[in-house]
Design a protein around this nucleic acid. Structure first.
Ligand SMILES: [Zn+2]
Ligand SMILES: [Zn+2]
Ligand SMILES: [Zn+2]
Ligand SMILES: [Zn+2]
Lengths: 143, 143
DNA sequence: CTTGACCCTATAGTAGCTTCAGGGTGTGAA
DNA sequence: TTCACACCCTGAAGCTACTATAGGGTCAAG
């Protein structure tokens, strides 16, 4: 199976497949005489797994760790469960941050109810007078 | 006022200030004989405004547009109000996406309640069998 | 006259791709 | 046979909003 076909069954682009190989997420496949990449079923499974993880907004580092844990068939799955818990925490934290942001933005939006002169716009005044505060360190890889 | 002082009152780093200048958000200031940047009160206001917008997770493009609208003192503030509404929509959409993601992740987490053999882990099975779907185009700049 | 805090420019790195430039390969039609 | 066209290859650059580093200049105090 050539790269175009693999990309199609995994619903991603050819470039993305090549990128995952370079990034170390997908192992380099065999090559044909013409130097074309030649994939098998194991690659299909792996790539779909990776795409599913990405659809859940995991980072490459998280996916890499997951693949490593997966390949140690000897151990138990405690590490896997933990990794997922941590990622769920990332999502939770980002939701909380964005909810607070939305609150701030809604309050700001209240400051101007109708079209008026730019100089009088409460939104601009609000943006000018907000307390500038050091940006918090991020606790999550999500935005 | 030199760049270090400006950065301090605006709660950001010197590098960030220089970056904003290169990015076209902050106009280049006068220079001293020693080629040091020399800022005035207008720059302080502008930079604080920018930092406040960034604290609300606006993109540079959004901030750039906002500054442009702001500087057309002749017009009304309809464009400003609209820009803010659109950004609030960005935040709303991202919250909705992340909420759905959390739902999916919680369901996945339910698939494995306790440590067991890796081969039997329901999380891995879930990740392998999810329906790979084309990643939706993003409707928001928020990660 | 040296130390240290500040300033300057230019460049590379971060994440996860996408896009482009400049080529080679393989198949069906004219 | 030769052309067009779809597909494949590599390597490098572009995207966002910074951050960090290298390698230097400026200035006041001791
Ligand atoms: Zn995560
Ligand atoms: Zn207004
Ligand atoms: Zn926005
Ligand atoms: Zn498990």
């Amino acid at each position: 199976m050539k790269i175009g076909e693999l990309a199609q069954v995994a619903q991603c682009t050819v470039e993305t497949v090549r990128y995952y190989e370079k990034a170390g997420l997908l192992s380099p496949p065999a090559r044909t005489a013409a130097n074309y990449r030649s994939y098998g079923d194991a690659h299909v499974d792996r790539l779909r797994f990776i795409r599913n993880c990405r659809a859940l907004d995991m980072t490459h580092a998280e996916i890499h760790a997951l693949l490593g844990l997966m390949d140690q068939a000897a151990g138990d799955c405690g590490g896997i469960n933990q990794l997922l818990d941590e990622h769920i925490a990332h999502v939770d934290m980002r939701i909380a941050e964005l909810s607070q942001l939305k609150q701030q933005l809604s309050e700001l939006r209240q400051c101007c109810q109708s079209k008026q002169a730019v100089d009088a716009c409460g939104i601009l005044q609000g943006l000018a007078s907000m307390e500038t505060e050091q940006r918090h360190e991020r606790h999550t890889h999500l935005g």
